[in-house]
């Protein structure tokens, strides 16, 4: 039995708490992803659209969330990864990543995944269907 197959429904993978969101982290993500929408890096541009300041790329948070699963690469892979963007992430926010096993079969595991801010609010939430190798 692999680590993931031993998980029971309702159990969680080890949470990850991210460092407080920094402007440099968002600049790095802009460069790495090619998403240069200035509301993620330049305060004046964010304010011009009515935001209090820059917000993280939704895909930065979703990208971070996938790392809960990275170390299990010999056991299976993410087959579907489905996310709703529910709240904005601002500079200095502290985001915690969580995955809870919702269903299991011999072939696949379905996890409910979310990223939660320091106020306990979901900023993104969704599902991961994790396909298991034989």
């Amino acid at each position: 039995m692999t680590v993931l197959q031993q998980l029971e429904v309702g159990e969680t993978l080890v949470d990850i708490q991210l460092e407080p969101v920094s402007r440099l982290a968002l600049i790095k993500y802009a460069g790495a992803s090619g998403d240069y929408n200035p509301i993620h890096t330049i305060d004046e541009e964010a304010k011009a659209t009515g935001l209090p300041g820059v917000i993280a790329h939704g895909m930065w948070t979703m990208g971070n969330l996938s790392k809960l699963f990275t170390s299990y690469y010999e056991e299976g892979f993410i087959e579907t990864f489905s996310i709703r963007f529910k709240g904005m992430v601002f500079l200095h926010d502290v985001i915690r990543l969580q995955a809870t096993l919702a269903e299991k079969s011999p072939q696949a595991l379905r996890f409910q995944v979310r990223a939660v801010n320091q106020r306990g609010e979901d900023v993104i939430a969704g599902d991961v269907m994790y396909s298991l190798y034989e």
Partner: peptide, 12 residues
């Protein structure tokens, strides 16, 4: 500018 990303689903 001004677009909001609502949902994202990957299938691999």
């Amino acid at each position: 500018k001004g677009l909001i990303h609502g949902e994202q689903t990957y299938t691999f």
